[in-house]
Nucleic acid binder design. Structure first.
Lengths: 223, 223
DNA sequence: CCAAAAGTGTTATCTGTACACCCATGC
DNA sequence: GCATGGGTGTACAGATAACACTTTTGG
């Protein structure tokens, strides 16, 4: 392998994460506003160039830390983007991930060394993004739909537990479908992924619901 | 993005394909013997460096053409390999694919510009390979097991059609499982992916079996 | 006519879907 | 006591798994 062969010299990898949440009936994605070229001042997904001394997952996590200040997020592989001209600077292949976090966590940085803003956008109101990030976002959303059925990707959506009706609304929002209450409960409990906390939700004029949480160290067999 | 930033300068991508077949009760993989450094004279999976002017799939197909002379093979994404030191030359991330071909096709080149041999190896008898290809092979084999249940990856295994008992033996060989003859037949016919050719197999002392083929332009819905 | 493997049909079980009723709360 | 949403059980249907007998060929 010749290091300077022009056929493959000057390549790189992007690690890009679509960070989703669900907030009052809407799926939202976390976007950052770029400070630097290329695509200066444009909104973009969280991500950047992979470094030589880190794995893809480590790179994605570093980018998340650098661009929005969050650590410890679980990432799920989503797909590859390899159009030859997807970066104007050099040949870049993007490896993309999905992350899910609580919409109300307060520790998201609005400004960093490379970003001048960060905010949640409804999926239907996402602006034109840097690079091919609109295309990546759509693919990640499709993959999110698959992942919520086959993995425990939603386990980090609720920091303070959730009721089963709340969880159902999240599924219905993401999949744009309606489920039968009784069958949904049966299904989600049969997976043995969640457990009763013993706490009841704060009620508002109706029967209080039990608060559940995802079991620690329990993985969906499909993960 | 600074092109010469040492943090991410000098990266590249490998496109690597595990080409499988099934031959008389054994899963086999096609290996090539490398002519050049690194890993000179060692066996390896088919693959190489991605060029700047091609997509990942195009690169994988070009490598297959260059190293074993075969064109038109269908590839299925298998996984990513991203250990920092997986290549001794420079930082390389590998994108891996699965291909399946007929064991008896005669057009596989034994020697090319970069290879000095090519041969089928039983999975259980694969030698120490170049790079991390042993690890890649194991992962691709696992992925093959998943893919034969969810995709039409096997459609290129038989150039001259197959009988349903033959197909069942292939599934049983790859998955290391036994299936009920009657249920297997029912299931595979219900998928509407194969059709009767009207031909009967060459018999050998027992009842001749119908020869089937995969329907053209029919895709498993899971693909 | 016997051995070997192909081909077919029926029954039981499980999984998923559809659906009706009761319960706890605030007002 | 009524409106609102939570919680439980049962019946039906479609899919999967288990299983027994007949057919065609070569020797």
């Amino acid at each position: 392998m010749e290091v300077n062969n022009p056929l493959y010299k000057g390549q790189g990898l992007h690690v890009i994460t679509a960070i989703f949440t669900v907030d009052k009936g809407d799926v939202k994605v976390l976007l950052i506003k770029r400070k630097n070229k290329p695509y200066e001042n444009m909104w973009a997904l969280v991500g950047g160039a992979l470094y030589n001394n880190e794995t893809l997952l480590d790179g994605a996590k570093r980018e998340i830390k650098e661009k929005i200040g969050i650590e410890g997020i679980d990432l799920y592989y989503a797909g590859l983007f390899d159009k030859v001209d997807r970066s104007p600077v050099m040949r870049m292949v993007a490896v993309t991930y999905i992350g899910v976090i609580d919409r109300y966590r307060g520790d998201i940085l609005k400004e960093t060394l490379k970003t001048c803003n960060a905010d949640w956008f409804k999926i239907s109101e996402v602006p034109k993004l840097a690079y091919d990030h609109n295309e990546i976002l759509l693919a990640c959303l499709e993959e999110l739909k698959r992942k919520i059925l086959e993995t425990d990707v939603l386990k980090t959506l609720f920091v303070n537990g959730f009721t089963i009706p709340e969880l159902q609304k999240v599924y219905e929002t993401i999949l744009n479908l309606k489920f039968d209450r009784r069958n949904f409960r049966k299904k989600v409990l049969s997976l043995d992924l969640i457990e009763d906390t013993g706490i009841m939700e704060n009620f508002e004029g109706n029967k209080p619901a039990k608060v559940y949480r995802f079991k620690k160290n329990k993985k969906n067999k499909n993960v």
